[in-house]
Design a protein around this nucleic acid. Sequence first.
DNA 1: GGCACCGATGTTTACGTAAACATCAGCGGA
DNA 2: TCCGCTGATGTTTACGTAAACATCGGTGCC
Lengths: 332, 332
Amino acid sequence: MADVAALAGVSSQTVSRVSMGLDNVRPETRRRVLTAMAELGYSANVAARALRYGSYGTLGVIAHRLARTGESRTVEAVVEAARAEGYTVTLVDVESPSSDDVTAAAARLSHQAIDGLVIIRAETATPDTLALPPGMPVVVSDSRFVGHHPAVGADQIDGARKATQHLLDLGHRTVHHVAGPADSGPAQMRADAWRAALTEAGRDVPDVLRGDWTAGTGYEIGRDLAPDPGVTAVFCANDETAAGVLRALHEAGRRVPDDVSVVGFDGIPLAEHLWPPLTTVVQDFSGIGRALVDLLLQQVRDGRALDDVHTLVPVELVVRASTGPAPRRHGT
Amino acid sequence: MADVAALAGVSSQTVSRVSMGLDNVRPETRRRVLTAMAELGYSANVAARALRYGSYGTLGVIAHRLARTGESRTVEAVVEAARAEGYTVTLVDVESPSSDDVTAAAARLSHQAIDGLVIIRAETATPDTLALPPGMPVVVSDSRFVGHHPAVGADQIDGARKATQHLLDLGHRTVHHVAGPADSGPAQMRADAWRAALTEAGRDVPDVLRGDWTAGTGYEIGRDLAPDPGVTAVFCANDETAAGVLRALHEAGRRVPDDVSVVGFDGIPLAEHLWPPLTTVVQDFSGIGRALVDLLLQQVRDGRALDDVHTLVPVELVVRASTGPAPRRHGT
DNA sequence: GGCACCGATGTTTACGTAAACATCAGCGGA
DNA sequence: TCCGCTGATGTTTACGTAAACATCGGTGCC
């Protein structure tokens, strides 16, 4: 900056004014400064600016298993929304969603230069154990922090109800559920809503089949289910799991949807191109990302904590070829 | 820091020494300072430290369409590798891979606090138009920058050759190719290698079918291909595209692999659970991520540019049920 | 013509940290 | 006993920026 000032024959303060776009600089002076800046390849030092202002123009994001569908799409949306607001995003991927790891990540990040923190799917973390720097604005996505930190989540319950009801409407006597891991909040909500929908309809509630979001366990569970003629409708906690179930059904020679109907959850781009195309509950990940950034920036800018805000993002059931009428039973 | 010093009854310099872990502080003094730090919830201000040192402990990453398979897995690996080296990662997602957008993103990022820059799949950008701050260390992944910036890429050529050869070995007369977008370097390399493999084997080279990495165009192209009995083997530029092709073949009633064999590229987790399970060329994304960070940190730490380093990460052909012997032709 | 005011620009200072240098107490050897 | 050395700690300064304040030349009005 001093070099630029010297070259342009002005004071460093004038350079600062030009670089900040203030208008109380003579056009002629401004031009000289800009020329000097270009010539020296000058650009403002962010560290100094952050030091001066106490803010960084950066949001921290903590995600678990970033490469997973929901995570990467949410992160993409957060990055996008943050950019629109003039913020960049610093990312930390935690190995496990345990509160210890999340706390450690939060600590690492808050020692970094961030103005606020987005926690994506802090599955098992409980509020008591999440130690955050005092005054650090936080939002969480899809978690159990609801009531402790502002939160944004897709309407898991509505989605799971719609999926279950869709299958019942098609004439299936009951619906089996391949759930996500027990320590996941969203998995729990989906399972609960599935159970509630069956109970309200007065149907039998089969045991929950416990998956871990991966296609691999979906496949294994599917192989157990396939020989059972009583299984005619399966609601899977996510699309990957559903893909595994579909594969197991194909291998066992059971036709989809003639013998068994399958529904997924998430709405991954590939869902439409599985075989058969998968009926699924589509989440609006980019809406979630925008809402997260929105809620976070409200706090960052007002310097005020929003404790009990909870934004619910609607979901949509998209019906495709993987679901169909229940097969006629013998003697019916 | 001043508050901590006052509370502990020492100078701020002593606080600094404790916070940096230097050992020339009496244990008793250190204890007092640590107590004061804990009491006040003190943690060092990164901006000031960065200002003092001129380095930020942060790497910038520019990605296009972050939620795509290869991108998110590479980013995850970069984040992981960077963390292992004590760096955090700041992320920018560009809307298009054009050099304009990448340049703008690089400019935005270099105004941010970063020590080095990772560009993932800068598809169309050409070196001439990529204006980077002088002295900013850079690595690129899978791009045409090879020879201008240090680069890391999967061995696209070997992978595409293996895929094509695998199909020829199964007795197929030729192999059709559903390519990625024309402006993508990796797509180009895969198409070139496919063409070379066919030519060397003395086979006909069908027209390239131009996709855009999505399952949607794979499906559309698949619908065009399905009615043609001359099409018995299809090599797709990525797994998503292959999923679309599979769907189109199923809908048209062509059996896989009995009538048509299909090969993908990338090795997404879902590939194994498509129907039928997809033969594909598996890329080692986490290896790529590690190599990128490696190459970048060499430059950051030595302050020296590595101009013509090009790390090639091996790929592996994984054969599954989507490929099989060529169907017997009439009269053979 | 002189004075008050305004816009353009320069000067001083503070942000929080850590290196460099200064100081000071205590200890061992001559 | 005194000197010099060593280790612990304090003081000064610089990093690059921008706010706050100071200055200076010009303009308009009485």
